[in-house]
Design a protein around this nucleic acid. Structure first.
Length: 286
DNA sequence: AACCAGGTGCGGT
DNA sequence: ACCGCACATGGT
């Protein structure tokens, strides 16, 4: 993998295991939109258009100082070929890798991920994206970009100031009080970043104190934004695919399911992303 | 018109 | 520890 930077454009070549469209559309992030022949997103205060042409990825605009940011966000340093080979060689998971290869787990902003996945509960991706967009217009900062005015994700302080009614107008529904209270707790010093350095079990216990954050949402936040690669979000799709792949289609005891998951190792969460994509694309039935 | 969508909080056993 | 239910909202 090589890269060059000139005139506000970052070009990364010799990509092997990266599929931009799959990574943007697999349900891990909600602010990437198809735009021209790429994806436009606003991430941690930056707007960028990502375009992939075979093994070449371009990021525009990209300041020189932002090169490390994008390498980290796109998780380009991780050896996904090793992970994909591991899945392919696994007797029970091998069938899922072909249609899912190239997915990278993005390393996102913790607060944005927290609020986004509170909204995701009992909701669908299209509506989640619309609601988040409205929240950004309501309480985010407008920024000038080559693609016109765009809005950043609100800070904890700005979001905490919003009334429940205003939040409801964005389509958050019954989650409005959760969002407002959680934003308040973060603003008032809840140490999100400290969860990076805790053991997974402890980080789960801490973050589920926030209203609207149960076990599933907790693992999404820990995996997508706080470096816990072994966090394993268990939603309806994952339960289905685990059932069919590991338990002959029958409902497993919770302890056995947990055993299988811990057997997937330190990067279970990355594997989860492949299984999730497989389950959704195949519409595995319950 | 019910039912679903990357579940959670709550009050009962 | 486990179970069933209500919960906004927009799309089939």
């Amino acid at each position: 993998m090589k890269y060059q930077h000139r005139e506000d454009t970052l070009t990364i070549t010799d990509l092997v295991y990266f599929d931009l469209a799959r990574s943007c559309e697999c349900g891990q992030a909600f602010r990437w939109h198809r735009y021209e022949n790429g994806f436009l997103g606003i991430v941690s205060g930056r707007a960028a258009l990502l375009t992939q042409e075979k093994d070449t990825l371009t990021v525009f605009p990209c300041q020189k100082a932002d090169i490390p940011f994008w390498f980290n966000y796109l998780d380009l340093e991780r050896d996904y070929s090793r992970i994909e080979r591991g899945i392919f060689e696994h007797p029970k998971m091998c069938s899922c890798v072909c249609g899912s290869c190239g997915i990278h787990v993005f390393r996102q902003d913790p607060f944005e991920t927290l609020i986004s996945f509170i909204i995701s509960a009992n909701n669908n991706v299209k509506r989640i994206m619309g609601t988040i967009e409205k929240l950004c217009i309501l309480a985010g900062d407008p920024i000038e970009t080559p693609f016109g005015i765009q809005y950043t994700f609100p800070t904890p302080a700005k979001l905490a100031e919003c009334s429940e009614d205003k939040l409801r107008e964005c389509g958050t529904g019954y989650r409005a009080p959760y969002i407002q209270k959680t934003a308040e707790l973060i603003r008032d010093g809840f140490p999100l970043e400290a969860l990076r350095d805790m053991p997974l079990a402890q980080a789960r216990k801490e973050i589920t104190r926030l209203p609207g954050v149960g076990p599933k949402v907790a693992d999404c936040i820990l995996l997508y934004s706080l470096g816990h690669d072994d966090a394993f979000p268990l939603d309806v799709w994952m339960k289905r695919v685990m059932r069919t792949m590991f338990f002959n289609g029958t409902e497993p005891p919770k302890s056995e399911l947990e055993q299988v998951i811990s057997g997937l190792g330190a990067e279970a969460g990355i594997i989860q992303q492949y299984l999730f994509h497989y389950a959704r694309s195949m519409k595995i039935e319950g």
